[in-house]
Each structure stands twice: as structure tokens, then as C-alpha cells.
Amino acid sequence: MFVAWLVGVPTTASAAAPAAFALSSTAFANGGLIPKIHECTSGGGNDPGKKNESPPLAWSGAPTAAKSYAIVMRDLDNANLIHWVVYDIPVSATSLPQNVAHVYQPPVPAGARQVYYRGSASLFGYQGPCSPSTVNTYEFVVHALNQASLTTLNSNSSTQTAAKAITAASIGSARITGES
């Protein structure tokens, strides 16, 4: 398992420093190459290795005040285009499996919701890297949230609206990046 580094965990002068909040994937090392199975299937071509499956992710050391988690994936080289938002992940979860179902309410993790991706492919959930002529950096950020559910979001929420709600409720985050 590869471990990424701590990002944006808030501290206060009166509180002890929180444990390191880390995000990792068994599919790729931080800063490493994202395997083709996690790349998009849109954009032409019939590469059988591309399956548009979300990578497995695991986190540890989240703030004890967390009430749920959310994950936001962005293409850092394409105007921070949001490729995936999954939220209302139960606080008891410490990982996501590979290939989270492409539905608003995936069966795993139970209770989670995903935002509809509107772009080259229109679907709920994960839209893998789609950079056929360049190598781009993709960032996965897990947020520990101060709410058990983001009740202002629903199946019609945009990725931008969801990302703003997640950032507003975040009490800590960890990230991992990959190249594709």
C-alpha cells in the first residue's frame, strides 16, 4: 500500500496536533502512473485496458470529530475539472473498493451518494482520466466532514456545487495524486 501526505488538517493553539491523516491506493503510488483500468472509455479508440473503474482508496488518521467523508477527484492540468464526487460516506468507512458502482446511491459504501458527471461521458460517479494527447495530474482528496449528511445536495447537484459544500464542511483532508 502506498501512502500520500497530510494536507490541510486544521489545528488550534489549545488542541494537541491531530494524527496524520493519510490517503493511499493499492492501484498506484502517490505521484505515480494511474493504471489504464481506471482511465475513461470515452474519447474514441477501443483500448480494452480502459474500463473507467474507480481506483481503490483507503484512509487513516482522520480527525476524531469526523461525522462522514467525501472524496473529490480533479484534473489539476485541466482547470481543476472535477471528475468524481462521492459524499455521505459513513464515518465507519476507511476505504472505497475498486469500481464503485456508477449510480447515485452505490451499494458500497452503503449510504454514500455520487454526483452526476456532465462531460464527455454523462454518468453518476467516477469519470476516469481522459487525456489522450497529454499527461495530466489527477488529485484525489478525502475530506473528513463535520456533518453526517450533506442534506443540501441531491441527484441534480453539480460537481462544483458539491465540491463547495464539501469544502465548507471539511474539518481535515488528505490527498494522493496520480499521472495519466
Results as ranks from 00 to 15, higher is better:
residue 98 Q to D: 01
residue 95 S to L: 05
residue 111 G to Y: 01
residue 23 L to G: 01
residue 106 P to N: 00
residue 18 P to A: 09
residue 90 P to Q: 04
residue 4 A to S: 14
residue 97 P to D: 08
residue 162 A to I: 08
residue 75 D to Y: 06
residue 37 I to T: 11
residue 113 R to H: 12
residue 97 P to M: 05
residue 148 A to D: 09
residue 65 A to Q: 15
residue 129 P to L: 11
residue 166 I to M: 11
residue 151 T to R: 08
residue 13 A to T: 11
residue 94 T to L: 03
residue 68 S to G: 13
residue 122 S to I: 08
residue 127 Q to G: 02
residue 32 G to D: 06
residue 156 N to F: 13
residue 156 N to G: 12
residue 28 F to D: 01
residue 92 S to H: 01
residue 52 N to Q: 14
residue 11 T to R: 12
residue 133 S to I: 12
residue 150 L to P: 03
residue 157 S to T: 06
residue 57 L to C: 13
residue 84 W to H: 03
residue 172 G to I: 00
residue 36 K to S: 11
residue 21 F to D: 00
residue 89 I to W: 05
residue 11 T to N: 11
residue 100 V to Y: 02
residue 125 G to K: 01
residue 124 F to R: 00
residue 45 G to R: 05
residue 76 L to W: 07
residue 33 L to R: 07
residue 105 Q to A: 13
residue 79 A to K: 14
residue 108 V to M: 03
residue 82 I to H: 06
residue 69 Y to H: 05
residue 146 N to A: 13
residue 178 G to A: 07
residue 58 A to Q: 12
residue 101 A to D: 13
residue 135 V to K: 09
residue 173 S to C: 10
residue 62 A to P: 01
residue 13 A to E: 08
residue 86 V to F: 07
residue 123 L to A: 12
residue 114 Q to A: 07
residue 176 I to G: 00
residue 21 F to C: 04
residue 8 G to S: 13
residue 136 N to V: 05
residue 100 V to S: 05
residue 176 I to F: 10
residue 100 V to R: 08
residue 131 S to K: 04
residue 158 S to F: 11
residue 37 I to F: 12
residue 17 A to Q: 07
residue 26 T to P: 02
residue 142 V to E: 02
residue 143 H to F: 14
residue 142 V to W: 02
residue 27 A to H: 03
residue 150 L to D: 00
residue 73 M to S: 09
residue 64 T to R: 15
residue 58 A to K: 15
residue 158 S to H: 08
residue 44 G to D: 06
residue 87 Y to W: 09
residue 15 A to P: 00
residue 14 S to Q: 10
residue 73 M to Y: 11
residue 139 E to T: 03
residue 145 L to S: 04
residue 63 P to Y: 15
residue 175 R to V: 04
residue 62 A to M: 08
residue 119 G to H: 04
residue 40 C to S: 15
residue 156 N to H: 13
residue 4 A to N: 12
residue 59 W to E: 02
residue 10 P to T: 05
residue 74 R to T: 05
residue 75 D to S: 13
residue 155 S to N: 14
residue 63 P to S: 15
residue 63 P to F: 15
residue 102 H to D: 06
residue 113 R to S: 09
residue 84 W to Y: 13
residue 38 H to F: 06
residue 83 H to N: 14
residue 55 P to Q: 03
residue 22 A to N: 12
residue 66 A to V: 14
residue 163 A to D: 06
residue 129 P to S: 15
